[in-house]
Design a protein around this nucleic acid. Structure first.
Lengths: 252, 252
DNA sequence: CGAGTTCTTGCAACATCTTCCAAAATATTC
DNA sequence: GAATATTTTGGAAGATGTTGCAAGAACTCG
């Protein structure tokens, strides 16, 4: 049987059953587990499926929650501790702008009743804080970018360009000594407006973002006040950041 | 069973019962208590549940669904059929403004991919449609009114006063021959802006809203094009509405 | 405070994954 | 069509992840 044929049948099978084990597939396709593994790797790269221990699942299960909230368990520990550490930097009664990244979502979870005013363009963050009567949540307008639940477009940019906050809590796709970069072009304008609207700017970046460059340039380093990261961030780059006057916090 | 599958079933179970004991889960999933503990730790990190001694609870009772979506089972059948009937009135490719009432939420559920452009100030509606990649959802900005998940305030009013749509689908607290009334003062300005922004105005009102007057006046009858209601609406008032040129649809 | 329960931590057994290599299948060249 | 590259496949060794258990710490409740 051809590789493509096999992979097609794996996809097909997954549409029916949400999850398949490796052995199941090996038997179904009558090939060795090794071959199935290779096929799964290809399919995962293609983005049509997601590998798990012992098998594979469809990319988006029936869950109606947003992709990142359920799917993204990458660097979960790191993001969690970054979230806690960043929340600790916030003083009571400060007004905050919250970016739409997955790391910032974890910050929101730790904010609790600390800050009475939060401005965000992230639906997951809005949903999270909506149930907390002690937090006042202002949602920017905008078009929903489906997978991530981010509000984008001119309405969002304008909302931020006309508001003001004490602190902006941001995340992005990459950081080098040349500055911060991010992958989604749609987000760049909004993030720029967020940075401009805030007195202080905090970036939450797990170690995988260091020394990485994404497609679009977001801002130079001198616009950043604090960077919160985890223990595994490369010391060399951290030293460089400190040299430029940026406060670096490493979460436990 | 897979770790993910287990965790999904734990979440699912918790949505039903608010609290589960460790032993209960261990038996349900047929794994050791240790494994359940580990799953709970992961889920807590993800933020979907909260661990307690001896088990786990939902993160905050009915947090991810807004009050009305769970609590309001009043006239559920009626609202459901009104929702369906109203959705049928929409022609493909019309742009819609969706109000934040519970009845309108049911309309959204039946829209499917009919209308590629939806504008709303309701978080529940936004969440609902966000997972549908074929619908373009524009969210008005605004402050979250916690219990209902409605976006209110100047940002919301302004968003609607600067947008335009073919149809506005509205609901409210009461209707008489004198016009439409609603209870939340905060919503009045926004609803007025919605009505102004739309070419045609549809009101979805179950029979309990008829001959009732709420605190604030919203609009006179001549701004309404269509009213969708259920079988139990009082015929006298319906006749009066028809006399004034309003199209009345009674859902089965 | 103390008895009982529940939680954390470290550990060993087991399953699964990755990496590498040799055999088989397929493609390419002359 | 034979000889030689290239790709694909299956398997083995070692790394990594997962699970259940037990001992000690921490918590709950009377």
């Amino acid at each position: 049987m051809q590789a493509e044929e096999r992979q097609f049948r794996i996809e097909e099978h997954l549409h029916k059953s949400e999850f398949v084990s490796l052995d199941e597939l090996a038997e179904l396709l009558d090939v060795s587990p090794s071959t199935v593994r290779r096929d799964l790797t290809v399919l995962e790269l293609k983005g049509t499926i997601r590998r798990t221990h012992g098998g594979a699942r469809v990319v988006s299960p029936k869950s109606d929650e947003f992709a990142f909230a359920t799917r993204d368990t990458h660097q979960l520990d790191e993001k969690e501790s970054i979230g806690r550490a960043c929340a600790e930097l916030i003083k009571p009664n400060q007004s905050l702008i919250l970016d739409a990244g997955t790391t910032v979502f974890h910050v929101a979870r730790h904010l609790d009743a600390k800050s009475p005013q939060v401005i965000t363009n992230s639906l997951p963050v809005a949903n999270l804080l909506a149930s907390n009567p002690r937090v006042e949540v202002l949602v920017s307008g905008g078009m929903i970018y489906p997978l991530l639940g981010v509000l984008v477009g001119p309405l969002a940019v304008e909302a931020f360009s006309r508001l003001h906050a004490d602190v902006a809590i941001m995340s992005s796709g990459g950081i080098t000594l040349d500055g911060i970069t991010n992958s989604h072009g749609l987000l760049i304008d909004i993030q720029r407006a967020m940075i401009t609207a805030a007195q202080r700017v905090i970036f939450c970046l797990d170690h995988t973002k260091f020394e990485r460059r994404s497609v679009s340039f977001l801002c130079p380093l001198d616009e950043i006040d604090i960077i919160v990261t985890d223990r595994l961030a490369p010391p060399a780059l951290l030293a460089g950041l400190r040299e430029r006057g940026i406060e670096v916090v490493q979460a436990a």
